[in-house]
């Protein structure tokens, strides 16, 4: 192990870290925005609304992220129509293709997570909302989605970590994320331990950070479910 090699080249890793963080957070954010309406529509009883969403989720959950990325990055260029259109400047960029594939991928997984959470809403809550005369939109906004988000959080935190790990695939299509940085160091100095173990440490740190942040969010979101010890103390004063 030659740590000085890493210290001298830490700049490449920092650059890679930036790319990883941007790729993961942007795709998670857009994926979530995509997933919320899709999950709501997925619970619709209308077959023609439900079926296309089902097919989308089925395709993206049933195939490897690597293949999805290849279809976008290498595959779209096969069509003259895409090459000639205004979309081509985007799809010829590896960065955009990775982002596109990641977003659709996490969107599909998140749709399924939120759908599960929506369907687990206690029947009584919906009945009560209807009884108070809420419209479907209001009920969705005030009753169903807030409680579904709470239920979905533990599973969604797994999805965040999967996306972080999945983002390492971006290095395969020439993007210099953390893994890409490690591959450069490895090929330049032929020092696989130093290169990849450093990348591993970066990913571990990010994973722990995500776990920590989700824990904090859980404390906030589940505040009303905690046993309230302070209440009795205040009552005495």
């Amino acid at each position: 192990m030659d740590l000085s090699l890493i210290i001298e080249n830490i700049g490449i890793y920092i650059e890679g870290l930036k790319h990883t963080v941007v790729l993961v957070s942007v795709s998670l954010f857009i994926g979530l925005l995509l997933a919320i309406p899709l999950a709501v529509l997925r619970t619709s009883k209308n077959y023609f609304i439900q079926a296309p969403i089902r097919a989308y989720v089925y395709f993206f959950r049933g195939t490897p992220l690597l293949v999805q990325m290849f279809i976008v990055y290498y595959g779209f260029g096969q069509f003259e129509a895409i090459k000639a259109s205004f979309l081509w400047p985007f799809f010829k960029e590896a960065y955009f293709c990775a982002l596109f594939a990641f977003t659709l991928n996490t969107g599909a997984y998140t749709t399924e997570i939120i759908r599960g959470a929506i369907e687990a809403t206690p029947h009584g809550e919906i009945e009560a909302a209807k009884a108070t005369g809420m419209s479907r939109m209001l009920m969705l906004r005030r009753i169903i989605l807030p409680s579904a988000f709470r239920r979905a959080l533990p599973t969604y935190s797994n999805e965040i970590i999967f996306m972080l790990h999945g983002s390492s695939l971006a290095s395969v299509i020439t993007i210099i994320d953390i893994t890409g940085a490690a591959r450069i160091i490895n090929s330049r100095f032929y020092s696989p331990y130093e290169a990849f173990l450093t990348a591993a440490v970066f990913y571990m740190a990010l994973t722990f950070l995500i776990v920590f942040l989700v824990k904090k969010l859980e404390v906030r979101w589940y505040a009303h479910l905690r046993p309230q010890e302070t209440a009795t103390v205040e009552a005495r004063v």
Binding site: L164, N186, P192, Y193, A200, Y203, M204, T207
Partner: peptide, 21 residues
């Protein structure tokens, strides 16, 4: 804990290149 913290690809490259060395 370690396995769940590191991406599959990084581990694979570590085993493939590192194992060789």
């Amino acid at each position: 804990t370690i396995i769940r913290g590191i991406p599959d690809l990084v581990l694979m490259l570590l085993v493939f290149f590192g194992g060789q060395v």
